[in-house]
Design a protein around this nucleic acid. Structure first.
Length: 362
DNA sequence: TCTCCAAATATACT
DNA sequence: TCAAGTATATTTGGAGA
């Protein structure tokens, strides 16, 4: 049977939660920011509500620039922990509407796929009812809205949900897929960002229709086999990927800005300690050990460099993280005379902690 | 020459 | 101009079969 898949995307999630918590924000431009350690204006926009967007405020925009676009907007710091709680409430609602426990896939804090092939027996009008029910349940239980997309695969449902926002629902039946995609700029395809957009543009490709008409071999010659084939399929609306629970993340990291650009070791290492503490705490909470350690430096000219190291076996040990991260950071100081702007530390190759250390750890 | 894996960079998303 | 943070994907390059 043809699959029927629903994608749910919360509307301006962080800002919507803040509005809900403080009704006096209603009607105002609300901008949720990730502030750096550099005072009032340093940092970037995470999410903004639609009033703010009307002023041209966008995700990832420097807060300073956002403020200049609308000086009356309310700027709030992100409260990630809190949003995560709201998120897990929402996810429970979504999961309960899927065919079964496994027919659910959370893809980020505010988005998920659910398969409803069996519940609706391939009937899109029933799928739409399920979509409406989800919207209603989320609204009444969490007082926020979401947008829903329904289609024959993840790609199409994902793109459908962003078609009408906020508080929208869009149904794309298999026979409508081609017309739906045709006129879209390639940038709208899920997985195509600025870089790929530019490359395509150089090839004279701007719309999905133009992309789908190109020869696969030509795409492969420019993008390599994997991406070339993926582009061709995606532009044709084909996506066979199943809806399935994501395996827990494979990496945990933290990154932060220094108060000022510097190469002062005390300053750098004390921030690094903080970041490592956070990372270790997260691994302990998730009961995982790690086998690789990566250190990132963003220099004052915004060039980014990383160093990483893989250990012989997985550990969950603050001192081992400490030693490795510090050594790599030291190397950065030796290799470059630029100031540091931001630094980060990340552990990867995570695996379930056994709780006991092996002999090799000594 | 192929395959695996570690290291580093690129890309995407909010 | 100003310029955050988290995570995954892709590419590169070396070692061993």
């Amino acid at each position: 049977m043809q699959r029927v898949i629903i994608h749910v995307d919360m509307d301006y999630f962080y800002a919507a939660i803040e509005e809900r918590e403080d009704p006096s924000l209603k009607g105002k431009a609300v901008v949720v920011c990730m502030f750096s350690n550099r005072g009032e204006s340093g940092g970037a926009v995470s999410t903004s509500n639609y009033i703010a967007r009307e002023a041209g405020i966008r995700s990832a925009m420097p807060c300073k620039l956002a403020r200049s676009k609308n000086p009356d907007a309310v700027f709030l710091p992100v409260r990630k922990k809190f949003y995560e709680e709201v998120s897990s409430n929402v996810m429970e609602i979504l999961r309960s509407n899927a065919d079964n426990e496994d027919a659910f896939e959370k893809i980020s804090i505010d988005e998920a796929f659910l398969e409803v092939t069996e519940s609706c027996k391939g009937d899109y009008s029933i799928a739409e009812e399920i979509g409406m029910r989800i919207k209603e349940e989320v609204r009444s239980s969490e007082k926020i809205t979401c947008s829903v997309g329904i289609g024959p695969n993840k790609l199409i449902s994902k793109m459908a949900s962003s078609y009408k926002k906020p508080d929208g629902i869009t149904v794309i039946k298999p026979e409508d897929v081609t017309d739906f995609l045709k006129p879209m700029p390639v940038k709208k395809l899920w997985g195509i960002g600025k870089v790929t957009e530019n490359k395509l543009s150089e090839m004279g490709i701007r719309t999905v229709e133009e992309l789908s008409g190109r020869d696969v071999m030509e795409l492969i010659s420019v993008f390599g086999k994997n991406k070339g084939m993926w582009l061709k399929q995606t532009a044709s609306g084909i996506d066979e990927n199943p809806v399935k629970e994501r395996t827990a993340t494979d990496q945990i990291g933290r990154m932060a800005s220094l108060k000022n650009d510097t190469r002062n070791e005390d300053t750098i290492f004390s921030l690094l300690e903080e970041l490592m503490d956070d990372v270790i705490n997260k691994t302990v909470k998730r009961k995982v050990s790690f086998r690789s350690v990566t250190v990132t430096v963003i220099f004052s000219n915004f060039k980014t460099s990383t160093k990483s190291r893989t250990l012989n076996h997985a550990v969950n040990d603050r001192h081992i993280l400490n030693e490795n991260a510090k050594q790599m950071m030291q190397r950065f100081l030796e290799e470059s005379d630029l100031n540091f702007r931001r630094i980060g530390v990340r552990v990867g190759n995570l695996q379930e902690s056994t709780g006991q250390r092996s002999l090799f750890d000594f």
